[in-house]
Design a protein around this nucleic acid. Structure first.
Lengths: 134, 134
DNA sequence: TATATTGTATTAAGACATTAGTACAATAGT
DNA sequence: ACTATTGTACTAATGTCTTAATACAATATA
């Protein structure tokens, strides 16, 4: 048993968005991790619990958790629950670098096609960092 | 009529990748733009020509071009061809900012969920820039 | 060792995505 | 005008995605 479930997560689904339910769940968990509302060891809502809240089939929640598990972002244990994993002990620096490179590559190629330069993107990120500090 | 078609583009398709043909075409064009192998005004291979080269139906190439056209990345004219568009005269600064923000938002939230910090991502981009200069 | 709680597996329905076949339409250049 | 060259529309076949129904399995804990 680890930490308690964060009640303040407040997941919601938008059926009109065209984004599949399970992807919306993944995105909201990613966001919560980025915002530090979810941290290592935190328990996610249970598959069943979240399914009831969101009024979807448990499989839909399970699929979201399953994708996050494949990525190493959560750990799941039957009978126990699903928890934000402690990635630091699982990924080597080489693996981290490879994943980041892959993420960045896809992002940069898309941004470039819109006419954004590498420098422009970096500057934008710098501004984002400054905003966070304030 | 504008510039000649770049012969050195060398598009290829990997049927085993699981990525749809039309998406592979889009990605390779985005890459070529990022690498400056394609620049404003350049003509892309014709729908039919590329279809023959890649051994796919013309509609598959047309679909790739069509998506790029919707994004404002290429301009298409029947009887004439498809060309890399001059985005600078079409997008306002506000629109540019909005698009970049949207791209970055998705990317950062995903990267964060893998445990990458904003600072780490920015540093990685800086290194990329330095590599390009060399 | 019950039994409640947690996640998992299988299947099927419906919608959507992907591609090819074929025919059509607009423009350029003679 | 003619004709070659360019992109486009329509349709059908096939596969994939998304979700739900339902039943199953592992763990925790009383």
């Amino acid at each position: 048993m680890q930490d308690k479930i964060h009640e303040e997560l407040e997941f919601t689904l938008d059926p009109k968005s065209g984004v599949p339910f399970y992807k919306q769940i993944i995105l909201q968990i990613e966001m919560a991790i980025a915002d530090k509302r979810l941290n290592q060891g935190d328990q996610l809502p249970t598959v069943r619990g979240l399914a009831v809240d969101l009024q979807v089939n448990p499989n839909t929640v399970a699929r979201a958790y399953s994708e996050l598990e494949i990525r190493g972002i959560v750990n799941t244990q039957q009978g126990t629950g699903t928890f934000i994993s402690d990635k630091k002990i699982k990924l080597t620096e080489v693996e981290r670098e490879r994943i980041l490179a892959e993420l960045v590559r896809g992002f940069v190629s898309k941004a470039s096609s819109y006419g954004f330069s590498l420098a422009e993107i970096r500057t934008y990120l710098e501004d984002l960092e400054k905003d966070k500090e304030e």
